[in-house]
Simulated scan of single mutants.
Amino acid sequence: MTDQPYPAEFARSDVSGVFTADAKARFALCYPETAHVLTHSLLQHPLLDLEALAHLGEQLPEKSLEYNRGDLPIGIRPEDIPSNGLTIGETIRRIDSANSWCVLKNIEQVPAYRDLLLTLLGELEDVTSATTGEMLRPEGFVFVSSPGSMTPYHFDPEHNILLQLRGWKTMTVFPAGDPRFAAPEAHEAYHSGGGPRNLPWDDALAAHGTDHRLEPGQAIFVPVMAPHYVRNGDKPSISLSITWRSEWSYAETDAHAMNSVLRKYGLKPAPPRRYPVNNLVKSYGYRALRKLGLD
């Protein structure tokens, strides 16, 4: 599939200067640990038109698609999320009235979208390389949401910038690394391969989140593993998420997995430290266990 040319009517156009100097300066000030809103100029790209995205959804493999009804609670188990009864193409083309939410995962599988992703990340690479080093494993995700739809409470392992392209939404972000908002056991289950990203929700948590309203032309940087949920506004929404990993984020992942091993032996390990502290001791320990097949 990755070798298929993308249809001419959705041909890519070159982009440059999507993030202004002011946006990059703010990003540099807050990266990598503080959620913050940026501005961008990526609003009319042909690859991000609704019909182009419907076509993309129909071309991606099933494992790269997630779509369901949008009227969800903040907290819900993945296995309890109801289907919307539509195909991915129908979901996107009818998003105004489909009462649905969908994400197209790993859009970089299509060369035109990979070019777009790498161009956008390239604008920020001088900032990230000075702190967390090389941008590793670049990935792109497109979210298409009906009015009022909800992305439940969860965390993500990547450094992430979400660009709002159409409609508006509010992302509520909680501090990363705080066990009040994501228990150590939830991180450990996820990073050792046995748990979901979705987190249990308690209304008592609401007062501790920070709401960030995103309009077209705005973006938000979300730190690694910062819990959050997203509520769409009263219009259909399109958002593009550009993500990357770093050696620091991989070390944190391994440290969580190592803690899972230690907990099996009745220990109560301290959670991984947040940036700028690295987690190399536990990371190297877990990588050694994995190489020996003892993880």
Rank of each mutant, 00 (worst) to 15 (best):
D3S: 13
P7C: 11
E9R: 08
E9G: 00
Q44F: 15
L53S: 07
L56E: 03
L60W: 07
P61I: 04
G70C: 03
P73R: 07
P73T: 08
I76G: 02
R77C: 00
I81S: 03
G89W: 09
R94K: 12
D96R: 12
A98N: 09
K105C: 08
A112K: 02
L118Y: 13
T119K: 15
T119E: 15
L121F: 11
G122Y: 15
A130K: 01
E134L: 10
R137V: 01
E139M: 00
F143K: 08
M150L: 14
P152K: 04
P157L: 11
P157A: 12
G167W: 03
W168Y: 14
T170G: 15
M171K: 11
M171P: 04
T172E: 14
V173C: 07
V173G: 04
D178Y: 03
A186R: 10
Y190G: 00
R197H: 06
W201P: 00
T210V: 12
Q218D: 11
I220Y: 06
P227T: 06
N232K: 07
S246I: 01
S260W: 06
R263Y: 03
Y265F: 14
R274W: 10
L280C: 11
S283G: 05
G285R: 04
G285H: 03
L292E: 10
G293P: 12
G293C: 12
D295K: 12
